[in-house]
């Protein structure tokens, strides 16, 4: 065990630059996908909350997308877009969209209708109601979706090196091919750490962004 750890340690040290590069690549891949997920998912969720007829079809499509195995989806998109990073991001985007869409929709529709009516009655425009009332109140639910999306993206990104998207998957698959435990771990451990850190990071963000007025509410509800 000790021998293995020292081998692992020396591998990490001697390959630090390359591993760091892969980690950064991995993170970029995942965050880009989450970014696109937010870009499409939040407006999508807002539209779903406004036009309830969209909810069924949209959730059906995104759910169906979610059930397609990642590798199958990757293969399919590879045929369409070819190898490379862009395709990787597109695959991950398909998986980040559903949680964000769903969380946005749930968050907005769970805002007390009395508050929305009060806002309307006071003379806020739809946009003001969304920006000043609905989104701030939906934030904590929304961030749960973002958290799920980010963790899924970081996890799924590991297999996308197969379609040339890069990232820590490269190291893991190299290790598998060479039956090198050290190399498998050198890819897997940073990937796992990345997921854990992203999760913690978003929790921190949630605490920072949520109004103190809402924090009191939650702690009061718990006690």
């Amino acid at each position: 065990m000790a021998a293995f750890l020292s081998e692992f340690g020396s591998y990490l040290v001697s390959n630090a630059d390359r591993l760091l590069e892969l980690t950064v690549e991995h993170l970029q891949l995942s965050l880009a996908a989450v970014g696109f997920g937010l870009l499409v998912g939040i407006p999508g969720g807002v539209l779903m909350a406004r036009f309830r007829r969209l909810v069924g079809p949209v959730l059906w499509v995104t759910n169906a997308l979610q059930t397609v195995p990642a590798l199958a989806l990757a293969g399919f998109l590879m045929i369409l877009f070819g190898l490379g990073r862009g395709t990787g991001i597109a695959v991950l985007f398909c998986y980040t969209l559903m949680p964000i869409l769903r969380a946005t929709y749930t968050g907005i529709t769970s805002v007390d209708p009395a508050l929305v009516e009060a806002a309307r009655g006071m003379g806020m425009t739809r946009w003001q109601i969304l920006r000043m009332v609905q989104l701030p109140l939906a934030l904590s639910v929304l961030l749960v979706g973002v958290r799920v999306a980010t963790v899924i993206a970081i996890g799924t990104a590991t297999i996308l090196s197969l379609i040339g998207a890069g990232g820590l998957g490269q190291e893991i698959f190299a290790g598998i091919r060479r039956v090198s435990d050290v190399r498998i771990l050198a890819g897997a451990v940073p990937a796992a750490l990345l997921a854990v850190l992203a999760d913690a990071g978003i929790s921190w963000l949630e605490r920072r962004l949520t109004s103190p007025g809402l924090r009191v509410e939650r702690s009061a509800a718990q006690s």
Partner: peptide, 19 residues
Amino acid sequence: VHLRRRIGYVIQQIGLFPH
């Protein structure tokens, strides 16, 4: 929107914005 801004409105559920 302009009409409502010059009319005060109080509802039963109080409707203060918690955030």
